[in-house]
């Protein structure tokens, strides 16, 4: 049995479907990404999952329980960090953790949790004085303080600067090592690609694909891109290579897309034509490219 099973989930607000037939399963111990652009229905999906909203249709179970009927037990087993939730300004970090720990029968040791999320020195700091990254780390600690089996983290790094985002990512890696199943909701493809074992792509309330990040990239054509500057002499030769799927040129900047191995094929062919490529670089197709291919628009566009 999977730790989370969602089948045909539907939820409408005032007649407008926000989630329209979402299905996926999450395995115990994995970091599962739910990605999609803003307004795609990610938050609504996880709100149904933790019993905060009652779905209009479909079935869902978490650790074998239905959040609709076993709400109290689901709340004990699932730790949640919600989007746009904060704490009272004057509540101190240690007090917040101590308070939330008292809500659970068998809580984690909040003092060591505090150290783990890197807030050991902030124990007596009021919430209002924390930086955005520190607030998110506190929020993760609060989601974990009940020693949950599943942690649901919604838009953890939205609004964080790149450094704080990277620190938060390494924290998620730690959470995974604790053996907690993580559902990570995000609209940053880089984040999902870095952290998630598998990803569900949600677009306009529906699941477009569920796969590993690499699997999604491969599905969307996958492969590699090679870019360099150089004259047009070898274009026809390159296009004819079996590894190359497309070639485009803007001035003397050439972008060649193809399967794995395209880099070697391109450089060999260029050498044979005695063309020296300048600023040669190759990059793997990313989840961002895959997302674009799967949904038709970049993840940064609003729904």
């Amino acid at each position: 049995m999977e730790i989370i099973e969602i089948t045909g989930l539907r939820k409408a607000y005032g007649g407008r479907a926000a989630v329209d037939g979402v299905s996926f399963t999450v395995r115990e111990g994995e970091v599962f990404g739910v990605v999609g652009r803003n307004g795609a229905g990610k938050t609504t999906t996880i709100e149904c999952l933790c019993g905060l909203r009652t779905p209009d249709g479909g079935t869902l179970t978490v650790t074998g329980l239905d959040p609709r009927t076993d709400r109290a037990e689901v709340r004990r087993r699932v730790g949640v960090q919600l989007q746009d939730c904060s704490l009272p300004d004057r509540l101190r970090v240690g007090e917040a953790l101590d308070l939330y720990a008292s809500f659970y029968d068998r809580p984690a040791d909040w003092r060591s949790l505090l150290e783990e999320v890197g807030l050991g020195s902030k124990r007596d700091t009021p919430f209002a004085k924390l930086s955005g990254g520190q607030r998110q780390r506190l929020s993760i600690a609060l989601a974990l303080v009940g020693a949950p089996r599943v942690a649901v983290l919604d838009e953890l790094t939205t609004g964080l600067d790149p450094l704080a985002r990277r620190e938060t990512w390494s924290l998620i890696e730690q959470v995974r090592r604790r053996g907690v199943t993580v559902v990570l909701v995000t609209h940053f493809m880089e984040e999902a690609e870095r952290l998630c074992d598998r990803v569900a792509v949600i677009d306009r309330g529906r699941v477009t694909a569920v796969d590993t990040p690499a699997g999604l990239v491969a599905r969307a054509g996958g492969g590699q891109r090679v870019r360099f500057r150089g004259g047009p002499g070898a274009d026809e030769v390159l296009r004819a290579l079996p590894e190359v799927t497309s070639l485009s040129r803007e001035g003397d900047m050439v972008t060649v897309a193809g399967q794995d191995g395209v880099l070697l094929a391109v450089t060999t062919a260029l050498a044979a034509c005695q063309i020296v490529p300048a600023e040669l670089q190759s990059e793997r197709a990313t989840l961002d490219d895959a997302f674009l291919a799967l949904t038709g628009r970049p993840a940064a566009d609003p729904a």
Partner: peptide, 17 residues
């Protein structure tokens, strides 16, 4: 009203309390 506006109440509603 401040607690509701800032999600303090919503945050509590996903705990056992």
């Amino acid at each position: 009203a401040t607690y509701r506006e800032r999600g303090v109440l919503r945050r509590l509603s996903v705990t056992p309390v």
